[in-house]
Amino acid sequence: MITLEKVTKKFPKQIDTAIKTVSLKIPDHDFAVLLGPSGSGKSTILHLLAGLTKPTSGKIHINNKIISQLTDQEASLLRNQTIGFIFQEFHLIPHLTVRQNIELPSQISHSKTSQTHIDSLIKEVGLTNKQHDLPSALSGGQKQRVAIARALVNNPSIILADEPTGNLDQATAKTIIQLLKSLHEKHRSTLIIATHDEEIAKIAKHKIFIRDGQITKD
């Protein structure tokens, strides 16, 4: 269960407040889309959930932990074990192969991830014959598939995807969203996708509308 309680976020050099008293509940295994125009605060909310930034006021609970009060060590553990984050710009490490990029989260936590688990993940995202290539040899859609597999490697209960199709063409975007949805159904993880694309939003039942840092409709 993810709960936001009157969360506000104001950036130091910003006049306006990015997030204005947002309260929100997302149950386990939910598939929610955070829909709003650019600059409305979608990324900020996902960053708050991942513990990458702290709220100015209010509380964020994830699985009964108040994540706004975590130490660096605890927040890191949350990002590594509980949350899988997918960025719009993929953010792969350029000199590591597809397989090594996917393995990274398990390497960070020294978890005993079996090679067959990696194999099946690579197969699930359809990159078996690309696994020893460097990211530079991949198309945009393939790069995002690597990022998706990487987000899943430690079996997190929550997947956060920030505009995962923002850098992809329409057709590729559709397959990526389909992939995310089918993986969510298979692994039963909570999936939250932030997007400004109403087409994409159609795929999810739970839609959260956001504008100027406020939830307009949940």
Binding site: Q73, L77, H91, R150
Partner: peptide, 16 residues
Amino acid sequence: QKSIAILRSLGATKKL
């Protein structure tokens, strides 16, 4: 810096 930031987002602590 970017690789380091990626590692951080994937759950690497400052210490790591």
